[in-house]
């Protein structure tokens, strides 16, 4: 009984933590400038009037995530709220990895939105971004269900 209750409250904590961390991520995206598709395309326009500022976004993120991950790996042990740390284990470079990255890059370059900025930026209710999010979810789930039947 009491373990059932602690299980449930731990599940609640897990959800609250995910909500808060998601909000921090979205807050960071808003500060970074990644929510503006025109700015993203300006960053990707290497051969035109290049706007390098968004390189500082990935740079700033890696400046924290690289030592942070290193520390978590060294420390070992479980996560604070939800069991073991699930680090990805695959190391093989296969065709879906490369082809998927190419398709993603083409879509990103066409519109200037990748998944995070789209899923954070729809809240301002711009119709084009809502439509993009819908198409992105359809694409992801369509490919996911294909993968599941193979």
């Amino acid at each position: 009984m009491s373990s059932e209750r602690s299980q449930r409250s731990r599940g609640g904590l897990e959800v609250a933590a995910a909500l808060a961390v998601g909000a921090l991520f979205g807050f960071g995206l808003a500060l970074s400038g990644m929510l503006d598709p025109a700015k993203v395309i300006g960053f990707l326009d290497l051969f035109g009037d290049w706007d390098p500022s968004l390189a500082f976004v990935m740079g700033g993120a890696l400046l924290v995530s690289t030592p942070g991950y290193l520390w978590l790996r060294r420390r070992g042990g479980p996560s604070l709220l939800a069991g073991a740390l699930s680090w990805p284990t695959r190391t093989d470079v296969d065709r879906p990895l490369v082809l998927g990255a190419v398709l993603f890059g083409v879509g990103w370059g066409l519109v200037g939105l990748c998944p995070g900025p789209a899923l954070a930026g729809w809240i301002f209710l711009g119709l084009p971004i809502l439509v993009f999010v819908l198409a992105m979810v359809v694409g992801s789930f369509a490919w996911g269900s294909l993968g599941a039947t193979r």
Binding site: A18, S32, L80, L81
Partner: peptide, 22 residues
Amino acid sequence: SSLIGGALIGTAAVLLMALLGR
């Protein structure tokens, strides 16, 4: 602001691994 925003994104990534292992 891009650098600070990026650092917050990196912080969120570390926190998600530390708290939920993801």
